[in-house]
Simulated scan of single mutants.
Amino acid sequence: MDSYADHMFTQDVRAEQDRVGMGDRYAKTYANRLRGPLDEDARAFIETRDSFYMASVGATGWPYVQHRGGPAGFLKVLGPERIGFGDYLGNKQFISRGNTRGDDRVSLILMDYPRKARLKLIGHATFTDADDDGELAARLATEGAVPAERLVTIDVVAMDWNCPKYITPRLTEAEINTALAPRMQKLTDHITALEARLTALDPDWREA
C-alpha cells in the first residue's frame, strides 16, 4: 500500500501547503505513514461501519459522491488490501458504476460520529453482477439483508486517518437506546416499586 500523500499531495497541493508554512511538516509526518496492508485497527473500523461515502469521477471531469449504507458490517475486508460490499437496487442511475468504466479510481470516507473518527481510503473499484460470481456474492452477503444485485470490490491503494476536528458527534437510534438503557431500566424499576406501594395502599387505584 502506498502513502496517502504520494497520491494526494500533488505539486499544486504542496504549493498551497508551502504557502502557509506546512509543506515540510506534512512531508515529515507522512514519510512514516502506513505503507503496508490494512492493519488491525483499520480492519475493525471498516467492518463495523453502517455507511460510507464513495466518490468517483465521470467523463465530464465532475466528481460524484454517493452514500452507501446497510447493516453494520456490510462493508467487508476481503484481503490485506481489498474490501468489498454488496450493492442493492437503487434509483438505477448507475452513475458510480458507469464512472468506473472509464476510470476505476474511487475515494471513500468512513465515519464514526460518536468517537469522532474518520478513515479515508482510495483504491480501484470493480463492479460485478451478483449472478456472475456466486462465491464472491456469498462472501459479501450480510445477515438479514436481501441478496445483492451487484458486487463491488475495491483494491485499496492508500489510507489515512483524518483529524477529528469539527466532527459533530451523532448517535444512531440503536446507540441512543443502548446509552439510555441503564437509566430507563432504573426508571422502570422505580415506577414498578411505586405502583406496588400504591397497590398496597389502595388495590383499586388503577381504576380511579
Rank of each mutant, 00 (worst) to 15 (best):
Gly123Ala: 11
His124Pro: 01
Ala141Leu: 03
Ala117Ile: 02
Arg139Phe: 07
Asp131Trp: 00
Arg118Asp: 11
Ile109Val: 15
Arg118Lys: 13
Lys120Arg: 14
Ala141Arg: 03
Pro114Trp: 09
Gly144Pro: 00
Gly144Tyr: 01
Thr128Lys: 00
Ala137Glu: 07
Phe127Thr: 11
Gly144Ser: 03
Tyr113Phe: 13
Leu140Arg: 01
Asp131Val: 12
Ile109Cys: 14
Gly123Arg: 01
Lys116Met: 15
Pro114Leu: 09
Gly144Ala: 02
Leu121Ala: 10
Met111Thr: 07
Arg118Pro: 07
Arg115Phe: 07
Leu121Arg: 02
Pro114Thr: 14
Gly134Thr: 14
Leu119Asn: 09
Pro114Glu: 09
Gly123Asn: 06
Ala141Phe: 02
Met111Gly: 06
Leu119Phe: 11
Glu143Cys: 02
Lys116Glu: 15
Arg118Val: 12
Arg115Val: 09
Ala117Asn: 05
Ala117Trp: 04
Leu110Cys: 13
Leu119Ser: 08
Ala130Pro: 07
Asp129Asn: 12
Leu121Trp: 02
Ile122Met: 12
Leu121Ile: 08
Lys120Ser: 14
Ala137Pro: 03
Ala137Thr: 08
Asp131Leu: 09
Asp133Gln: 05
Phe127Lys: 06
Leu121Glu: 05
Asp112Cys: 13
Asp133Tyr: 00
Asp131Pro: 00
Leu119Ala: 12
Glu143Leu: 04
Leu121Pro: 04
Ala138Phe: 03
Asp131Glu: 15
Met111Asp: 06
Ala125Met: 11
Thr142Ile: 02
Arg115Thr: 14
Leu136Gly: 10
Glu143Asn: 01
His124Ala: 15
Thr142Cys: 01
Gly144Val: 01
Lys120Ala: 15
His124Val: 04
Leu136Thr: 08
Ala141Met: 02
Leu140Val: 05
Ala117Phe: 02
Thr142Tyr: 03
Phe127His: 12
Asp133Met: 04
Leu136Ile: 08
Ala125Leu: 15
Glu135Cys: 00
Asp133Leu: 07
Leu119Ile: 10
Leu121Gly: 09
Ile109Glu: 04
Leu140Gln: 02
Tyr113Lys: 09
His124Gly: 06
